[in-house]
Write a protein that binds this DNA or RNA. Structure first.
Lengths: 195, 195
DNA sequence: GACCAAATAGAACGACCGTTCTACTCATGA
DNA sequence: TCATGAGTAGAACGGTCGTTCTATTTGGTC
């Protein structure tokens, strides 16, 4: 909508991720963004509102990237593409190995209901997103419901360990584990076709 | 060593974990601990020193718990006991679902070398710890080196998702995945015994 | 009893924080 | 033409932060 608003979100997103929420002052955000302080308060409900705005922006961009990477893939590849999309997202900018911004936002604002509920909503959406890709990959509803939390856990584990193992290795480990997990499960589409 | 020092660390550990590092002031720590401000500065090199002290304390307590849980277990159970130990650690106190304190410390102090190197050291120790348990469970050096990062990733993923799925479910998912992963690997001790 | 290290309370510091407010500019459209 | 809404610069606010310092008291140990 508003150009200034977009600039503020993009700037805050970058600063929050590289320097942390508490360590990034509101003055710093507006100064780097080249926007007046009053403008920020016109668009957002204080700093907490800005944080929520950043998370909204992140979520749509992230899931769009995953959908983009999954386009055209079928069967097991469609599920594994979640890891490929995550890798492309993580390598978007150098130094993108500081963990999940949503979890960091929640842990830095334990008493901010607006932020915590926003993070919870994101994780719920993420889990549903995994289940949807399993369905689209050929798994039935029951299998998708059973396997989705495992895929989700591997994705979250990959992000958490990126800072230590590096993006490439961490996500590859998770992807390989997911591959084993999918091919070993008795309800994989391949097995269903065989019977 | 010093009783006051221990009290400060235990108090800071609790406050840092439940409320975050930046949100927990030094005044708050000494007030809750019932210790004078000067005493804190006699024992620690400022707030950053206190953070490192807390991480040191956490690491020894955590690995001690894992070793305790692994005692007497053999083969695959010895490796899977890492997840049981993690669960018992997480359920030690109610509300212990706020992610890994080490990763949170690193992400809240991006420009504090003492803290970041301490966190890096911890994760390296953790990975080595996983490898050691694989060796003690009967895997050879090469297999342990190959499987350890995967076990590590599952453990980290479990901690990351505890806040969303709950301790019990998150750790169970990770444990089950590890079980599949170990039994599927061609170099498991059980397979070696069979040949 | 004298000594010394540890612990205490509390003030003071400079710096930064998030937020609010005022006064001014500027473009757009009725 | 002028009313309106968005943006700007900058001051001011009360508060909190981490750190340092002083002055005093405790608790053992020679």
């Amino acid at each position: 909508m508003s150009k200034k608003r977009d600039t503020l979100i993009a700037t805050a997103d970058r600063l929050f991720y590289t320097e942390g929420f508490a360590a990034t002052g509101i003055d710093r955000v507006v100064s780097v963004a080249g926007v007046a302080l009053g403008t920020l308060y016109r668009h957002f409900d204080g700093k907490a509102g800005l944080v929520v705005g950043v998370l909204d922006y992140r979520e749509t961009a992230f899931f769009a990237r995953l959908d983009e990477t999954a386009a055209g893939k079928e069967g097991r590849d469609r599920v594994l593409s979640l890891f490929d999309g995550l890798l492309s997202w993580a390598e978007q900018k150098p130094g993108n190995e500081n963990g999940c911004l949503f979890l960091r936002a929640a842990s830095e604002h334990p008493e901010e209901p607006a932020i915590r509920t926003r993070v919870l909503k994101h994780k719920k959406t993420y889990l549903t997103f995994c289940r949807k890709h399993l369905r689209e990959g050929g798994w039935d509803a029951a299998a998708a419901r059973r396997l989705a939390p495992r895929i989700f856990l591997l994705l979250e584990g990959a992000v958490a360990t990126c800072g230590f193992l590096g993006n490439r290795i961490a996500i590859k480990q998770a992807r390989d584990a997911a591959e084993d997990l999918l091919s070993q499960d008795p309800s994989t589409p391949a097995m269903q076709n065989r019977s």
